[in-house]
Each structure stands twice: as C-alpha cells, then as structure tokens.
Design a protein around this nucleic acid. Structure first.
Lengths: 334, 334
DNA sequence: TTGAAAGCGCTACCAG
DNA sequence: CTGGTAGCGCTTTCAA
C-alpha cells in the first residue's frame, strides 16, 4: 500500500539514494533537470510519502516534542498545549501530550516512554514529588523547559508567572476593600506555584496586619472537590473569613459552590479572587475576579526556549522567564 | 548516553539477538537461567531502554494512536481525549492529539503526518468539509473510528450520540413549558452532529405546531462569538423567541451573554437548553439546562472499537455505536 | 551527476 | 540454547 523510496527509484529507473536527494531538495543539489522530473513524476504517481520512523532512526532526530502536564482537561493546560502545538506545527514538529494526574509514577513512566520514542525535546509542568528523573535529564543536557512550576534545587530553563507578587497584590486589594480576615484556599501544596502564592499571601497578611491564623489556610489539591470541601471547612470556623483567595481553575468553582450552598452571598458576605482564568469565569453565578495568566505568551516563550535548545549545537545558558499576570476585577469582589 | 542492545550484549558477553530475546521475555524462551541473569544485570547496569523507533521500523507496529479533534481546549474533546489516553496508556499505546480548528487542510495534513509516523490506528472527529482522505483510509482498511460526527456516504466505524432524539425532546419540553417560539442557535452547519440536532428541532417544531420560521434558526459555528452574535440577531426580531436551544459548549455561553446584555432575564423572558456539558454549566449566572453526553462511555467505546480493529487479523464488520445522552434541567428553563 | 554500500537499533529466521 | 544474518526505510559518505 505505501510506497518506499525504492519503489519510486525503480519506477524512475534511478537509485534510491538519488531519489532521496532530489525529494529532500538537498542544498547543493547536484542533479540534472531530467532526473529531477523523473523522480517527481514517479513519486507523484506512487503517492510517495517518506517514512518518518525510518528517517528518525537514521537521522537521530524525530521532530517530536513531548509535553507533560497534569491534566489536559484543565483549561489552563489545554490552552498552553494548543499554543505549543501551533508553534510546533509551523516548524514541522508533532507534539505528544501526556497527562500525569499529578502522579509522579506516571510522570516518570511518560518521560521514559517519550525518550524511548526519541523526542527531540521535552516541556513539562512537573508533579514535583520527586526530582530524580528531571535531574538526570538536566545532567545529560537534554533539551528541557519547565513551565508553571519550578524546582529550587535544579537548574533548568523555566517559564513562570509572578505568583508571589500577584498573590500579595490580591490580598492587599482585599484588605483595602475592608477585609481583615482573608483566607487562602490552596492548590496542591507540593507545587512550586502554590508555594509561591502562599508565600505572597503570608507576606501580605503580615505586612498589612490581617488576621494571621493557620486555620485560614486550607486545601491541598487542584480538583473541584478539594475547593468545595476545604471552603466548607472555612465556613465552619467560629469567625469565617470575609474574603478568600483561591488557587486554581477548578478549585475556585468548588469554593464558590460551597459559599453559595451555605446561603452566603458573594461578594456581600464573602469576596473572592481566584488564580484562574477561562472563558467561563465571567459568566459564573457571580462573575469571578481572576488573576489572569497570559497563556499564549507562556506557550510562546516556552516553545521558543525549547527550540533554541534543540537547534543550538553549543550548550546554552539556563533561561528563566518570568511572565506577568494581571488581575481582572469582577463582581465577586465588593 | 543511551545504551543499545549491542552495548548490553557486549557487557554480558552474548549476542544482541540473545539479549533481545531475553529482554522481551519471548514466549517459549529457550534461554538458560545463567544467561538470563547475565542479561538482566548488564541491562540494569547500563540503564538499557529499548529504542521504540527502531522497534517500530522493524515490527511495522508503533503502539501509536492518532487522535484528531477540532480543539482540545474545548472541554468535550479534552475529556474524550483523556478517556482515550487512559485506555491507551493501560495497553501500552501513546496517543498523539492533533487539533484541526475545523480546518480541512489541517486535518488532511495531520492525517498525512500521522500515517508517515506509522500510527497503528486513528480516531477522528472530522471537519467534514471533504471526505477524500477518510474515504481513502477506509478503502485501504486502515483501523479508523469516527466519533461525535459521521458521514452519510462513507461506511466507517463510529461512535455517536442520539442528537436527533435529544434535540426533539428538548424542544418538546420547552413547548410543554409554554413556549411557542423556540429558536435554534446552530453550531457549524456542515457538521453531521449539528445537522442531526437541527433535524430533530425541525421535526419537533412541525409535530408540535410551534412557530416555524427560518429566522428562528441562526448561527453557523462553535465559537463563543458565533453564539453571541447569532443570539443578538435573534433578539432583534420583531417577535423574539421565548426559548432557545443552543448547540455547543462555548456557543451556549455566548448565547447567554447576548440575552443578559439585552437586559432580559433567564428563564423569565427566555429559557435556554444547551447541547453542552462541563463542570461550569451549573455555576453560570443562570445554571444552564444541559444535554449531557456520557463522555467516558464515548471514549471507552471508541477506543474499544479501534483496538479491536488493530488487533484483529481478519476484516471486521463496521460498527456503529449509539450513545444516549441525558437532559439535566437547571434554572435556565422555567 | 549518479550509484553502491554502510548503518541507525531492533526483531526474526535459520543454523549450529 | 545461542549466534549469525538479513532487513525494516531512510540518509550519507565515498566512488565511479
């Protein structure tokens, strides 16, 4: 069914190596016009299309990029993936997306699989339960870029957003609006990003003399349920918070549901700001004030850094790119 | 850096073919325990991991599955993709997701690319501007399953939902609630799924003696903007509809925004039912009554049919699987 | 300007 | 039970 170089060669009465040269349009193509025509005609006729697997094996270059994310069903990662895929498409790369569900074992397995498939580079928002695998990649100088998350103890390329500052500013704003008790509904605590946000929150609480209590910090996951349950916990406090800073796309919807189910009003009783952004945020029961990440920029920068690594023959210096998020105020803040 | 079979063989003082046999745990493994141990030790020591590219080339089997969807950032496709990826993972398959943005040229390009990469099978929610490429795949009996969309004139495996009936029932319900003027905000009209829904709508309108006007049928796309603009158009009618049936996840949010921006109330002035389902639907300004597709079931069935095709040596009969959706009533219907 | 041959890393077949 | 060899389809070096 599929034709090979040899088939084309036979039909054109040439050797496969000649056909290969012509078809690839080799730079200093030392080929007669007559020959070239024969090749193209034969290739056309046989619907020849090169076998990428063979090419990969021979050239040690796959035009494959691995992208490992927690969950592509999360709008944030979906859109970053799209952005990266589009970049890749333009340059002839196919990207393989893998979902870890925040499981280190899956991440490890995927890295192995992807490497054995000969990917040219890897983009990853790591689970961060372990550094081992990634450490190894770094050691062997494998083209690698982290995004959204980072390690303190590994020197890698990464594209991050200014979570610390964004968090600090959000709390400050809530305080200025009159809240003395601002709660923090956390995403997965192991995650660098979450930690940065929590740090920002803590610093603001301290600087602004807000109520400083561990019981105002709840949650440890990125799911809807996590947001829902941990917010319910907040509402059971003797003195519930008057404002909440939520981490995560799905978490924020969960938090919102908990508040509403308790018969409270947003923002009258409780204001909410969320690290979250998707097309739905502004059409929720109460439009959600959100800290928005410029997703395309994240995808763009990430890809750019990776492709530089892949293309460059010398060793490149580590790049850390910080992207600035913006706060979009909507009805959920009074 | 990476070790090969040969490296392991040298270290173990054996031939690479022997090492290969041992490492694959060949069925009737005619290998001495002593040898086996030597192999495993050497492999371990060298961190040997087989080169999938070479294996693919040799075995003509890649353990790669292609998945082509309009847009992975659409929650419906994201979740189907996840479901399929999980199935694949369990059976050693890697899935490559490609996004067409509803562009036929992209679909065609992706099919080519995927084939040249030697995928074992293809799952696709086709753009449906052209049948040519898919026709060819069918002719050469390439393992293929369509989902969410189908062609009338091509005999393929497909997994569909009962859009016609669901649409009919939704309109009927709206009529029973008192609406005489039910509008239809359409997704991309070329799409089989959309057509089915429109048919169902039309039949219900006729059967139930509702206002039958072409001006009540608007829209031709799956974007937020499409829903927004075409609904605005509806509201400009001398007699605007009292209920709307919307097709599509993002479209419905657009429709909702148009209604609200016009100062109208949902459901007091206008009821809405949407073909749409995602975690946000129930937390929108007005929780949205939705026709819900059992996504995991869709992913499961699709994968099952594909894997059967891939594994079977004889030719299998065409399978058409119909999945039943369900209507979840929320506040957007009075 | 073109052909021949080697080899990417692996599996499978045939000897011994 | 193990080794040798051919070959998957391609690119690349060396000859002619």
């Amino acid at each position: 069914m599929k034709s090979t170089l040899k088939d084309v060669a036979k039909k054109a009465n040439l050797h496969s190596s000649t056909v290969s040269r012509v078809l690839r349009g080799e730079k200093k193509l030392r080929v007669s016009d007559e020959t070239r025509k024969r090749v193209f005609d034969a290739a056309e006729e046989l619907h020849y299309s090169p076998n990428q697997t063979a090419r990969t094996l021979r050239m040690q270059k796959s035009f494959l990029i691995g992208l490992i994310v927690p969950d592509i069903a999360n709008p944030f990662f979906a859109r970053v993936a799209r952005s990266i895929e589009i970049q890749g498409f333009e340059r002839g790369y196919t990207v393989i997306v893998c979902n870890t569900d925040e499981k280190q074992e899956k991440e490890d397995k995927f890295i192995d699989t992807l490497l054995s498939r000969g990917i040219d580079g890897l983009i990853i928002a790591p689970v961060q339960d372990s550094t081992e695998q990634i450490q190894k990649l770094v050691e062997r100088k494998f083209p690698l870029v982290l995004f959204d998350r980072d390690f303190d103890d590994i020197k890698t390329n990464s594209v991050l957003t200014n979570n610390f500052e964004a968090s600090y500013d959000a709390v400050k704003l809530l305080a200025e609006k009159g809240s003395k008790r601002v709660a923090f509904v956390s995403g997965r605590r192991k995650i660098y990003t979450t930690q940065q946000r929590l740090e920002g929150y803590k610093k603001a609480v301290k600087d602004l003399n807000l109520e400083n209590s561990e019981s105002l910090i709840v949650g440890d996951g990125f799911s809807f349920e996590s947001g829902f349950e941990s917010t319910k916990q907040l509402l059971k406090l003797p003195e519930p918070p008057t404002a909440i800073l939520v981490t995560g796309n799905l978490v924020s919807v969960g938090a919102m549901k908990a508040v509403l189910e308790a018969g409270l009003s947003i923002p009258k009783d409780i204001s909410i700001i969320a690290f979250s952004d998707n097309i739905f945020s502004q059409y929720l029961v109460t439009p959600l004030s959100s800290i928005i990440h410029p997703i395309d920029e994240i995808g763009l920068e990430t890809f750019k850094i990776l492709i530089n690594q892949i293309d460059s023959k010398e060793e490149l210096p580590i790049v850390k790119k910080m992207i600035t998020s913006s706060l979009e105020l909507r009805d959920s803040v009074q």
